[in-house]
Design a protein around this nucleic acid. Structure first.
Length: 837
DNA sequence: AGCACGCCGACT
DNA sequence: GTCGGCGTGCTC
């Protein structure tokens, strides 16, 4: 029996399976998806079994055996192994990188070099020296001894120890270990035969009250109990229990326990609500697909507050009734305790929760509930799509338009695409929910040109639960404000509205999608702008620390009061950030209580929730922040939402900026007036006529989508053509340009034979189309042309039709790396990029 | 990624 | 004459 193993070396040359012999004693343990320790060259590495076979092409003499199996239950399934292969090919990463991304960080291999007694040491002449014997004895007695530990024990003998290693008396072995151990807890076990305890009672001295209490408790509750719990329960100390254990009446031993981040919290059980007419209408086809074990993708387009979550909950119930499992994905930011409560409340301990705020250990334990089949529902952020379920009936992606579903590091996968790929294999239904669906998803619900059935099914909910109206949105033209002499960041209508709320003791949400104090610092005499010395980007002034910071590389310098270029003192701050708004608010409205939420105030673990609960408790009048205040929050007393500058997103040079502006405005508008009190929204802008702002103010998604789709078709952007972004970086600009140009030339050459015809570029993309067309834009300097002293060039590959674009780029990269190997030039490929930067 | 093997400059 | 620079190539 041979195993095909992918080893833990993410490099081009090792990006293939290596064959290993499976020793007899490991046969029943080695499966596709097993994590194993294998000898690789001179060391031992972690690897993943991706295949088993009775044949091998390798000379059997060169085959090495698998060293050991790392888990009792394989952490991956055969399905996930093949999904990994698909991800590696689709998103151009090493296969091991894709597999690694599916596992919790706790299972990332840790390599340790351990000193052992060498194999040839038995009759070594050196062994007759007495101090060598002492050293060998010491090494024998330790299971995991590092070289450092050995040198510590025998100080000043480094050279001699090295000699022993070279002579083979001692040996250094590399070990694969898990990063995370399972947690153990001392547990008390009463004897099976309770009469033992009864017999023990009279044996105790009369004043051993505590010990007697323990025995009596165990007689009444004859089951295993955690030592810590017992101690708390009957107010004793650990030594009391230990002395009982020493006399053999009870048993005390370590038992593996799960770290439960939600331990001690009880969730109020909820029962399915009666669906509204609209909810029932969209639920019916989802229910049917799940009940019939049929793969179908639904886009659930429902306005904010239309009750999508209840539809999710009842769809999951349907999957559970079928004996199937369900995965629920939400953006990291909206995975709040309230969100978790809704799912735990309905499905109790059948739910595992996976998100980045768990510690590695907690996350590992939640994840193990899945492999142990203790849960049927997983709710989590992006990576929860890899939950090792085997019977998936339903995958839900809430807020499917969120760009955080695209992983920015390798593997640069899109969760939505992976979800559909997984669901196909399981015959599972997929529900993509959003109030502002991405245009890619929307497009797939529309009829094809030849009237074929669209790939996705559109379900729409237009009514808010309890028919609360959408809040009216007022667009404020900031140019007019300026003309009439208002130079502050608050327009008069917004100012009045804030004043009014403060008076009425109602709450306010203010959005400004820019952190820091000022976006750039300029000298008004000579025009000098403070720039990062390592990146081609202006520095942002942070008031609290009085520093100028680069948001790309973290570079920081002291605030300047004199122009470094002309010595003038007319240094001024331009552009507005959240810090500046905060300062201005307290100036204009003395005594106003403001909570500022941006990455600078929420980096600490748990701070996000802390601010939100402060605001919920009405400890503040204003919640001011970047886009994180726009997402999913629900506060009954918020009646005013103000967008300080709608143009910040719109002016980013990216083809999705209109879409992002529309989404952001729609989401933040949804924060106002969700309960009894009527809400109101003010949007300040210098471009009041832009269609994204106009349509958002009328809550008209369809009108926006249709207009934006026209723009995309004309420019050949997604969803009509798909994109691959290739970025090159190097310290030296001239070499970079030359190489990038060579890459593009070669890419076009490789693509040419695949191209079939050049028609039809403006009808919707269908992935199984039979033709293929590709265009390459660039190379050009990236929008941020230098980061950390490295210049950046990029080219954008636009293609549509048959799914060979990844392969073409992959071939080009392989060719390119061969001839640029010595240049330290890096190429990075992003398939379906979310930002063209 | 490591690590060994291997072919050319500055030193005991 | 040797030590060591890191270019090239391999790992079942």
């Amino acid at each position: 029996m041979y195993a095909k193993v992918i080893v833990d070396v993410p490099a081009k040359q090792t990006n293939r399976a290596f064959d290993y012999a499976v020793p007899k004693e490991l046969r029943s343990w080695v499966e596709v998806g097993s994590r194993v320790g294998v000898p690789f060259g001179p060391r031992v590495l972690q690897g993943f079994v991706v295949g088993l076979s009775n044949e091998t092409d390798v000379d059997p003499k060169r085959l090495k055996p698998i060293g050991h199996v790392l888990d009792l239950v394989p952490p991956l399934t055969a399905e996930l192994v093949s999904l990994g292969r698909w991800i590696a090919r689709m998103y151009l990463c090493h296969e091991v990188t894709a597999l690694q991304a599916m596992l919790p960080a706790a299972l990332k291999a840790k390599y340790e070099r351990v000193i052992t007694v060498g194999e040839e040491s038995a009759e070594h002449p050196l062994l007759h020296m007495s101090d060598v014997q002492e050293i060998v004895q010491f090494v024998r007695g330790k299971a995991t001894l590092t070289m450092e530990g050995l040198m510590e024990r025998f100080p000043g003998r480094d050279a001699f120890l090295k000699e022993l290693l070279q002579a083979g008396v001692l040996a250094e072995v590399q070990m694969v270990k898990d990063r995370m151990a399972t947690k153990k807890a001392l547990t008390v076990f009463p004897p099976k035969d309770l009469s033992v305890l009864e017999a023990a009672l009279p044996e105790l001295p009369a004043r051993a009250n505590k010990q007697m209490a323990v025995l009596r408790y165990l007689m009444e509750h004859p089951h295993a109990i955690r030592l810590t719990e017992l101690i708390e329960m009957i107010e004793i100390s650990a030594s009391t229990v230990k002395s009982l254990a020493e006399r053999g009446w009870i048993e005390l031993r370590e038992v593996e326990v799960m770290r439960d981040p939600y331990a001690g919290r009880s969730f109020k059980r909820t029962t399915p609500l009666t669906l509204t007419e609209e909810q029932s209408r969209v639920f019916a086809p989802i229910k049917a697909a799940v009940a019939e074990d049929r793969h179908e993708v639904f886009l659930l387009h429902g306005v904010t507050g239309s009750g999508k979550t209840e539809v999710y909950l009842q769809s999951i119930q349907q999957a559970l009734d079928m004996g199937k499992e369900a995965i629920v994905l939400v953006p990291e930011i909206s995975l709040t305790p309230q969100m978790v409560e809704r799912f735990k409340g309905r499905f109790g301990d059948q739910v595992a929760v996976l998100h980045s705020r768990l510690s590695n250990g907690e996350r590992y334990d939640e994840w193990r509930k899945i492999t142990r089949k203790q849960v049927k529902v997983v709710i989590g952020a992006r990576s929860a799509i890899f939950a090792p379920f085997t019977q998936i009936g339903l995958i839900i992606i809430d807020e499917e338009h969120e760009s955080s579903y695209k992983q920015e590091e390798s593997p640069k996968y899109h969760t939505r695409e992976v979800a559909v790929q997984r669901a196909k294999g399981h015959n599972a239904a997929v529900v993509l929910g959003s109030a502002t669906p991405s245009l890619e998803t929307l497009e797939l619900t529309r009829r094809r040109r030849d009237r074929a059935k669209p790939p996705f099914t559109l379900l729409t909910m237009t009514e808010r639960v309890a028919s609360r109206p959408m809040p009216p949105v007022t667009i404020v033209d900031m140019r007019e404000e300026l003309k009439t002499g208002n130079r502050s960041m608050f327009s008069r209508p917004l100012y009045k509205a804030i004043e009014e709320r403060l008076h009425k003791k109602e709450q306010i949400v203010l959005l400004l999608n820019r952190r820091g104090y000022a976006t750039f610092v300029m000298c008004r005499t000579c025009g000098y702008v403070a720039q990062c010395p390592h990146c081609d980007i202006s520095l942002t002034y942070h008031q609290s620390s009085r520093m100028l910071r680069c948001h790309y590389c973290g570079y920081a310098e002291r605030e300047v009061t004199q122009c470094p270029s002309c010595q003038s003192e007319h240094i001024r701050h331009f552009g507005t950030g959240t810090q500046r708004v905060e300062e201005e608010l307290s100036k204009i409205f003395p005594g106003i209580r403001v909570i500022r939420m941006d990455v600078d105030t929420t980096s600490e673990k748990g701070s996000h929730e802390k601010w939100l609960s402060l605001f919920r408790d009405k400890q503040a009048d204003v919640l001011l922040g970047t886009q994180m205040v726009a997402k999913g929050l629900d506060f009954p007393d918020v009646t005013l939402v103000g967008v300080i500058a709608a143009d910040t997103v719109l002016n980013i040079p990216d083809f999705r900026s209109a879409e992002r502006t529309f989404q952001l405005l729609t989401q933040v508008a949804g924060r106002a007036g969700r309960h009894e009190k009527q809400g109101e929204v003010f949007v300040q802008t210098y471009t009041p006529d832009h269609y994204s702002i106009q349509h958002a103010s009328r809550h008209d998604y369809t009108a926006f989508a249709n207009q934006e789709l026209d723009v995309r078709a004309n420019l050949g952007y997604p969803p009509y053509q798909r994109l691959i972004l290739v970025t090159f970086t190097h310290e030296q600009l001239s070499l970079l340009v030359r190489m990038a140009e060579a890459f593009v030339t070669r890419l076009k050459e490789i693509a040419r034979p695949y191209m079939t015809r050049q028609t039809d570029l403006f009808t919707p993309v269908v992935t199984d189309e039979e033709f293929f067309h590709m265009d390459v834009l660039g190379p050009v300097a990236s929008p941020i042309s230098r980061i950390k002293d490295r210049y950046r060039f990029q080219c954008v590959v636009k293609y549509r039709g048959d799914d060979v674009a990844s392969d073409i780029v992959s071939q080009t990269v392989a060719w390119f790396e061969e001839r640029s190997a010595k240049e330290k030039l890096t190429v990075s490929v992003d398939v379906d990029p979310q930002y063209l930067m």
